[in-house]
């Protein structure tokens, strides 16, 4: 944007000015108008995707950069294992294949005793946009086993919930079972396992 004299200011900075009717540089009145010449120059600039280190070759204009980041197929996920920087690292975690997109089928998983184990629920053949879930069994003294379930999503936003989990834990020998129903947190695991 620019004032009648020609002093330029970007629209986000202009929006934070205490007085939008007067130029920030010369106090000229009349407000600011779009500056087509500067817009053309800025549109000609191309900025590399921040995920270039992960293989993204996209270069976008400034105003397209945020949209691209939100859908970049090269956005990374992280590994909940301390000290490991690669989600795809081979930890020997057992995995179970889900045949239906988004789940919706019942999977019976054995509960390990006395060890922390992470199990991967995935779709055969992978595929862009197919959800990946981690089920972690953690021994908690006095409580038994804690079982968080998370959806691994490189584009997750804080507080986001896209899936619901119905979890039944049972010990037939004790004629006992417990039902939990909760929304599954989506995360890119950048802060470790929730």
């Amino acid at each position: 944007m620019q004032c009648a004299v020609g002093h330029a200011i970007c629209s986000s900075c202009h929006g934070s000015l205490p007085s939008k009717d007067r130029c920030h540089a010369c106090s000229a009145g009349g407000g600011s108008n779009r500056c087509n010449a500067l817009e053309k120059i800025l549109e000609s600039f191309r900025v590399p995707c921040p995920n270039a280190a992960f293989g993204c070759a996209a270069a976008t204009s400034y105003h397209e950069a945020e949209n691209h980041r939100g859908s970049c197929p090269h956005a990374p996920c992280f590994c909940p294992e301390p000290g490991c920087e690669a989600f795809a690292g081979d930890h020997g975690w057992p995995s179970t294949e889900m045949t239906m997109y988004g789940g919706g089928e019942r999977l019976t998983l054995p509960v390990p005793e006395g060890t922390t184990t992470t199990r991967v629920l995935h779709h055969g053949g992978g595929g862009e946009g197919r959800p990946l879930f981690l089920v972690r069994f953690t021994t908690a003294p006095q409580f038994g086993t804690v079982v968080p379930v998370v959806c691994v999503d490189p584009h997750a936003v804080p507080g986001e919930r896209k899936f619901r989990c119905h979890l039944v834990s049972g010990f037939p020998a004790m004629a006992w079972h417990q039902v939990s129903d909760f929304q599954v947190r989506s995360t890119n695991l950048s802060g470790g396992m929730p």
Binding site: M98, G104, R106, T108, K162, H166
Partner: peptide
């Protein structure tokens, strides 16, 4: 012991309410 897990996608209406 064992657990049975069933995961389903949350469906929402146009206002974002769970349905």
């Amino acid at each position: 012991g064992s657990i049975t897990v069933s995961i389903a996608k949350i469906m929402r209406d146009t206002r974002g309410n769970e349905i």
